[in-house]
Design a protein around this nucleic acid. Sequence first.
DNA 1: CGACAAAATCGAACGGTGTGCGATTCCTTT
DNA 2: AAAGGAATCGCACACCGTTCGATTTTGTCG
Lengths: 242, 242
Amino acid sequence: MNQPFSSVWTREPRPARSATLSRAQIVRAAIELLDAEGLDALSMRRLGAKLGSGATSIYWHVANKDELLELAVDEVYGRITLPGEDTAWREAVSAFAHSMRAVLLEHPWAAVLLGSRPSLGPNAVALVDGLMKVGRRAGFAGMAVDHAWSTLLAFVLGATTPEIAWRAALGSTRVSDTELMKATHSVAEDAVRDHPDLAAHYAQYKDMDVEAGRAAAFDFGLTCVLDGLQARLDRGDAPPSG
Amino acid sequence: MNQPFSSVWTREPRPARSATLSRAQIVRAAIELLDAEGLDALSMRRLGAKLGSGATSIYWHVANKDELLELAVDEVYGRITLPGEDTAWREAVSAFAHSMRAVLLEHPWAAVLLGSRPSLGPNAVALVDGLMKVGRRAGFAGMAVDHAWSTLLAFVLGATTPEIAWRAALGSTRVSDTELMKATHSVAEDAVRDHPDLAAHYAQYKDMDVEAGRAAAFDFGLTCVLDGLQARLDRGDAPPSG
DNA sequence: CGACAAAATCGAACGGTGTGCGATTCCTTT
DNA sequence: AAAGGAATCGCACACCGTTCGATTTTGTCG
């Protein structure tokens, strides 16, 4: 059985003969550490310390750090919710998108990883399965089903990632959110001198609730994507093959 | 002048009295190394070696590795093209999206970085300025201008990132693209056993051109976003404030 | 030209990383 | 009790980003 593409998911987890360390514990501890201190803070030594064991003991249960991260990411996938089959597709998709955004904002480290490698974990696969069911229910068929849900995923991921980046950049300083937003303007205005239109435009943001603004932007984009999907259904270019 | 948010762009580059090393050279060499061997392969020591100088000499021209990456990313921003003001907005946006996708596929390392930190470099700012002009020309006003272009950016980034991830995963093996795609199916089918619908669906992909399929998916999504933007213009909910 | 200061480069070193390996301990089964 | 696999551990290796002080190069002034 020569697998050219050996992934975590092709291998069974070690039997775990009720040992003091288990895959599940390790992943849980890793997620806690990641949530609390971010991606850079996760090292095998620190994780070992948190688990009260040697750093290298982890390697018995997990092949390497990458594989551990894959497991952690799939765990995050598992926390994204998708409404049941009785929900209208637009509502279902909207609820899913908001859930995914919320989960990613809660586990900021996952956003980068999620896009960085193919997602083949059980939770990810189950989620895609659910999304495809929604797509077919809406009226898509053939490849259009894939295109539909991957368009949606692309938007949510692409919209949330920079949001997280801003939070991280702001969070590394001490000041409050809006307060620092104003301070950033001096930098921005500096870089923006050659673009008066842009500068004038951003002046109107001086007194805005940043969080609310981001949520509004997300809803705007989501509405666009939904309308776009709807348009393709109406136009009938969502056929079984093409 | 207590900047809370000191970025590369607030500091002037070192005068560069025609030294043997300059910021521009360093960034150029870094990009070459990144293009050739990926993000993980870039270390200050290796970069120094490539430049024929000591590793630590670089720190005279650049504060740290993060700052170097910011410069490299902005360079990538600079290679994305946006059609001039005489182009209809739909065409302009479409051309931009395809250009951005192409550039990111050409510099895969940039995709992750691009979403990981706020983009305040001159090229990034210029690009946003241009996008906002297009947005206003289309008929958006107020915050809707921002929402429009950030929706677009979100889609392109979110769509291209997983594409790159797949390429990297496949590229790390020796086999050809479609060939390995088939081999992957055995893994997929394995993980997919509990999802017969999904498995059946993916069976139809066995004999498909992967690259072409991805391009089609991208165009599908882009059309959705464009239609969605158009819908908001028609409906008139792109007012100066709301 | 020599002198001197500033600019630029460099090597050594510090604390950290992921991980391979051999020795060691633990637990289960006979 | 003995044996043998399962699980843990410490050490070591090669590499990383970055700091710091010493060193070399370079431009300017007398």
